[in-house]
Design a binder for these strands. Structure first.
Lengths: 173, 173
DNA sequence: GATATTTGATATGGTCCATAACAATTATCA
DNA sequence: TGATAATTGTTATGGACCATATCAAATATC
């Protein structure tokens, strides 16, 4: 389905620099027909997902949190005392790829790895005080600037219906 | 929001090999609490998108078409006589990245680049006969095996509502 | 006709995802 | 108990996808 993440650079200049144009009569850029593409589930899903992630990053610019990082902080907060493998696998992150991610969060003093006394192989993950504070601010930004945008766009009822249907697709498709 | 594409390997073995467990009483894997994550738009969107792409690839296994390749074939069919830049930009693909993609499709004799006589810089894209035939079969597979699955899951009305809302998000978020 | 722009292409780097392999630690069980 | 298997975090590595700079050929602009 394609749809890159190039984002806002839709080059809103008149685009009058098209080619096939002799008179001043036909000056349209002759937009392409999307055709059946505009009803393809995967195509629309990916476009929507890219737009949502873009907006998320803009809303979180002041905290410098990516969607993935935000999800890690949320999950660690809700599940204290879990190790890397448990957190990573719940999020669908492979353990090897989770290492660098945690290195990042830990270097920013947002979370910490603690050697478990029960099983000295594993690292228990916890949020630092700063991590808790940042997550609290992040939640507010997400709620007021990000999720609220869905209400403005779809309305409360439709927003809930959308989330419900997407969950169903994510779980049962 | 994370959610890798590791797919089906959810390791459905009893997972009884957990740690904190002395008696046979408490043998649950103690699933993590998703908490607010399960209502995060981006998280669910990405999960749903990965599932849909997975299913798309399975449905198209016999034709070896990725979602991106399918979208290119669809767009070229609906817009004959367009060049690489036009097709690529409509799909949100950057021109440099579109080259290898076309090399692939052309090597499989699904589409062809034709030097334009009007503007000898550009390559007009067309589907080959084989490309048209493959696309026709692909459409049928997508309709019967892929998109039909949404109806089975949500019902016709909800399916249309979901597509409409996702389009709105993709265009106006 | 000199300069700028466009098109397809190459080279390159970044990010994310996936697999193999390893040391340290723990579990299994003969 | 002790040999073997499994688990945890980690490193190394490769692939797929995305983005930028740059280039030659062709065209547009002035």
């Amino acid at each position: 389905m394609t749809v890159s993440k190039t984002a806002e650079k839709s080059s809103e200049k008149p685009a009058d620099t098209a080619k096939g144009r002799k008179d001043a009569a036909e000056a349209q850029p002759e937009a392409l027909q999307l055709g059946e593409l505009s009803e393809q589930l995967g195509y629309i899903l990916k476009r929507a997902q890219l737009k949502v992630f873009e907006n998320f990053l803009r809303c979180m610019a002041s905290l410098q949190l990516t969607p993935a990082q935000f999800s890690v902080l949320l999950l660690v907060e809700k599940n204290p005392g879990r190790n890397q493998t448990e957190i990573a696998s719940t999020l669908g992150i492979l353990r090897p790829n989770f290492v660098a991610m945690l290195d990042n969060l830990e270097s920013r003093d947002l979370c910490a790895r603690i050697r478990s006394t029960n099983d000295r192989r594993s690292h228990i993950l916890v949020l630092t005080d700063k991590g808790k504070a940042v997550l609290a601010r992040a939640k507010k930004l997400v709620a007021t600037k990000h999720e609220a945008r869905l209400n403005d766009l779809l309305g409360q009822a439709n927003r809930e219906a959308l989330i419900a249907m997407l969950s169903k697709v994510a779980n049962e498709f």
